[in-house]
Simulated assay, not measured.
Amino acid sequence: MKHSSPAALRNRDPILGVLRDWLPASGEVLEIAAGTGEHALHFAAAFPDLAWQPSDPASDARASIDAYREEEGTPNLKPALHLDVTAEHWPIARADAVLAVNLVHISPPEASTGLLAGSARLLQPGAPLILYGPWRVEGELLVYSNHAFDEKLKERDPRFGLRELTAFAAEARAAGFDLAERRDMPANNLMLRFERRAD
């Protein structure tokens, strides 16, 4: 059964604009926590030379992704994988890029640790790990909408909430990634490109 996310429909084109600059020309993109599948459908259609591999830990999300794929998908959009970022082993051996939209703040800290560790196993040096979402940035005022969103997330689960970018970048460095670029996005979000460092 297909599900729809108003936020995904709003942000897919701004995200796509940045992905045009950041994704490789060919290869395989692993999308983590692909949710409804609307991003995967939109991005796969925009990048016909990339194999688009969506994944999600939730069975209803995977069902939605596959419903979009079967009804509206392109040949390069793969069936959804069951992937839990905290797992030691992921059901994919390699990727040329990893994308996670609205994951880090709507998950416990161990999900971020798992995302970094798993992406480091998959990606070759120079390959991107791309994140989208709201962040706390040291020295920058947290706008009211993000402050309210942060409080709402913490009410849902005290482990959730906007992460501090400097601290996350330090964790990423320890996992083998350097923060290569940051782009300001609509609705007070950021896109971040981390680059896999050569060991």
Rank of each mutant, 00 (worst) to 15 (best):
N102L: 05
P48N: 05
S5K: 11
E151R: 09
V143A: 10
R196G: 10
W52N: 01
Q53A: 01
W90L: 09
R173D: 08
I92H: 08
D56S: 13
G118S: 10
E110Y: 15
G133E: 15
T74V: 04
V85A: 01
V137L: 05
S5G: 12
E181D: 06
E171N: 09
A120S: 09
L103V: 12
S145F: 14
R163D: 01
D60T: 11
A187H: 12
F47P: 11
L99M: 01
P24F: 13
L23E: 00
N76P: 03
L16G: 12
G114A: 08
F194W: 08
L81P: 14
L129M: 10
L116T: 02
L81N: 15
A170S: 06
A95M: 01
R159T: 11
A63E: 06
D13K: 06
R94A: 12
P134R: 08
R94Y: 14
P158S: 05
F194M: 03
S26F: 14
L142V: 12
P109Y: 00
G118L: 04
E164N: 12
A87G: 04
D66H: 01
A80P: 01
N189I: 08
N11P: 06
L50P: 02
G17F: 08
D21C: 10
Y68S: 02
A100S: 10
T36S: 04
V104Q: 06
I106S: 13
E72R: 14
R163M: 03
A167Q: 11
